[in-house]
């Protein structure tokens, strides 16, 4: 009788074992970003080069006014899932383990100033579309070999570059985690039929570290001088900062500063000489790069 029960229990455990869970590599731990020129992300207004914005995505970006961030409801916002992996802070990936099966239920990546963004590996379904959307969205994952493929839905509208380039709340993100020894490659593919004409594919690198921390981030919104409900924006064609980019990088009129075309290597051949490329950085903008 005892053997029969044991056998039944083992069979049940085997049947319950997620097939894809057998290929596992551990992603948990503390990671530090490996910075590169590609992910320094200190953008100028109008610099949407490398982003596959469609026409309406560009129109949306051109209307964006950075002073909007002074409104209380814009303060304390975190980077969302489509962007935060390119942020400068340490990354902690925790894992939650089922106490009975010992299988990993979820990984939970977090950064400084992020919300919790669990990635579920237990086969649960994504919630219905009518559910709330969050900065981190709702993520599920499956193993593909030693790589983890993550699918994220239920995101809030959010930026993909901190200068008004947005993706909508209908965006979906496919993320790949690839670990090679102490290095983690994080690949994000953003799909958004509202503001992108092609998927946006970017990556970031992290290195395992043993002495990093992710501190708490208490944040309280305050009055910063903007009248309540004063939504700052530029009317179409009236954003005064957009032309600066062409001047800085020698981008001739008629050459795009956004869109899928600007993602590919051939685009570099369309850039002309400029003060910037000649090393005279800031001369066209006044001391310290401040616009005159």
């Amino acid at each position: 009788m005892r053997l029969t029960r044991l056998g039944t229990a083992m069979l049940s455990a085997l049947l319950a074992w997620p097939a894809a869970a057998s290929a596992q590599i551990d992603f948990s731990g503390e990671w530090t970003p490996v910075r590169s020129m590609d992910n320094t992300e200190d953008p100028w207004i109008g610099d949407w080069v490398g982003l596959p914005l469609n026409d309406v995505g560009r129109a949306r970006a051109e209307a964006w006014n950075a002073s909007l961030l002074s409104l209380p409801e814009y303060q304390c916002r975190p980077h969302g899932w489509a962007y935060i992996y390119r942020g400068p802070t340490q990354l902690r990936i925790s894992k939650a383990v089922d106490p009975f099966t010992r299988q990993i239920v979820s990984y939970e990546p977090e950064w400084h100033q992020s919300t919790n963004m669990p990635v579920y590996l237990d086969g649960r379904e994504h919630p219905p579309e009518e559910s709330a959307h969050t900065w981190g969205g709702f993520s599920t994952a499956a193993w593909e070999g030693d790589m983890l493929r993550i699918t994220t839905t239920h995101l809030k509208e959010d930026y993909i570059r901190r200068n008004g380039a947005m993706v909508s709340d209908e965006a979906k993100v496919t993320t790949w985690w690839i670990r090679r020894g102490d290095y983690l490659t994080w690949i994000n593919i953003v799909h958004d039929r509202i503001y992108l004409s092609e998927p946006l594919i970017r990556s970031a690198e992290y290195r395992l570290t043993v002495n990093s921390i992710v501190p708490a981030h208490p944040c309280t919104a305050v009055f910063e001088g903007l009248e309540k409900g004063h939504v700052l924006h530029y009317l179409p064609g009236e954003n005064p900062f957009i032309k600066d980019l062409r001047q800085r990088y020698g981008i001739a009129a008629g050459v795009p500063t956004s869109g899928a075309e600007t993602m590919y290597p051939e685009f570099a051949g369309k850039l002309g000489e400029s003060d910037w490329s000649r090393g005279v950085r800031g001369s066209s903008l006044g001391a310290g790069g401040i616009r005159r």
Binding site: E73, C76, T115, E130, S131, K156, G229, V231
Partner: peptide, 30 residues
């Protein structure tokens, strides 16, 4: 971090919170 808290049921569409209402307010104002 500008999510959760008071939840808002729109007349149509999905459930929202402060960020969704702020984006919506921005849109109609703009």
């Amino acid at each position: 971090m500008m999510e959760g808290g008071t939840m808002v049921v729109p007349g149509h569409g999905r459930l929202g919170d402060v960020a969704d209402v702020a984006y919506y307010r921005d849109m109609v104002t703009i």
